[in-house]
Nucleic acid binder design. Structure first.
Lengths: 189, 189
DNA sequence: GTTGCTTAACTAATGGTATTAGTTTAAACT
DNA sequence: AGTTTAAACTAATACCATTAGTTAAGCAAC
């Protein structure tokens, strides 16, 4: 019926990302993906190695976009303004791309080099934005974990609908980051 | 072949929780559950209304245990000691029961009264532990979100293996909570 | 242009999943 | 003891991912 559709990994990943954002991570089935691409499920195996690989590709794709969102939001700023802007960029990305964001949290897969690389970039960005605070070596590691947890915690809870009350979440996030920074002395020792 | 096994909702939920903790949330299939209970999959429908309801039951079951863990950890303490202990209790539960913890985050399901009730108890516990800080009405709401995000962020990232480096996570969590409390003035306005 | 290689699509088949319908029979209750 | 209730079952359906093997499109070389 269908001659060659002209599929490739990029088109597959992009379409899969849209499904993820529309229907959630569990909506990304090879059947649904194939249907949207006008192809039968087995045909996808000519380009990807099954669902597991697709998820890895989506994680990498998502991390790249997350990095870009955080990076562009904080570019040119410094100090608490940079931290705050980066946090908002993070939250906005997670809200705008819920499925893709979920994908970025999939098993870091010690063997997947590209995924580790992208995750490393995000980490370095967080480190760089905390650099002005002159933390101790070990303190910096703890602080990065703290900030990451705040960002992910907000993004994740908002996504799961955990914040029932109609109260601006971005205000909560800003205040929390400010509080965290106000007490960042804790990470100097 | 098998006479009555003597199944009931409790036994099903307990066994499902064990599967969740051993193999993760996605390992909780009715097929695996039935096999472990010595029964055929359709038999489970005599007690539960399918996978969806099972997940709701697990969420409630997990929230009860989470509440107990947080509550007993902070009992008798006050101020920052209480917040810290509660946080450690939260983290310990999530680490000890990864699958069940994941389940507690499933869609709050506005229609599920029992789930909302349990979630409400956890929320009230967090509120009570922040009460001594005399926050403003609105500030309290933001602060609760912040603390919850920190707790969930740490639990979730640790679970996903996001903290690669071999550095005590409980130290990171303590320091982050301390920093948050040090800057809690932000929530007084 | 024809030939031939590569590979993107296909069909068919397998095995896993949840779920429904309908049946048997064990256990509980009069 | 007889009746009812419900806990187990078998059988069937409809998804899902995946593998094996097949067809045919498109491109490169002659």
């Amino acid at each position: 019926m269908s001659p060659r559709v002209g599929l490739d990994r990029d088109k597959i990943v992009i379409e899969a990302a849209q499904i993820a954002d529309e229907y959630g991570m569990e909506g990304v089935t090879l059947a649904a993906l194939a249907a949207r691409l006008g192809v039968r499920p087995p045909s996808l195996y000519n380009h990807i190695n099954g669902q597991a690989e697709l998820r890895s590709l989506l994680a990498v794709y998502g991390l790249k976009q997350l990095y870009e969102a955080m990076s562009s939001a904080s570019r040119g700023l410094s100090g608490s303004e940079a931290v705050l802007a980066m946090g908002k960029g993070y939250a906005e990305f997670a809200k705008k791309h819920p499925g893709l964001y979920e994908m970025t949290l999939e098993a870091p897969d010690a063997n997947n080099a590209e995924l580790n690389e992208e995750a490393g970039y995000v980490l370095k960005l967080i480190i760089s934005v905390l650099a002005p605070y002159k933390l101790s070596d070990e303190g910096e590691l703890h602080a990065v974990r703290g900030l990451r947890s705040i960002l992910h915690g907000f993004a994740s809870l908002e996504q799961k609908g955990g914040f029932g009350i109609p109260l601006d979440v971005s205000v909560s996030l800003s205040a929390t980051i400010h509080a965290f920074l106000a007490g960042i002395d804790r990470f100097r020792e």
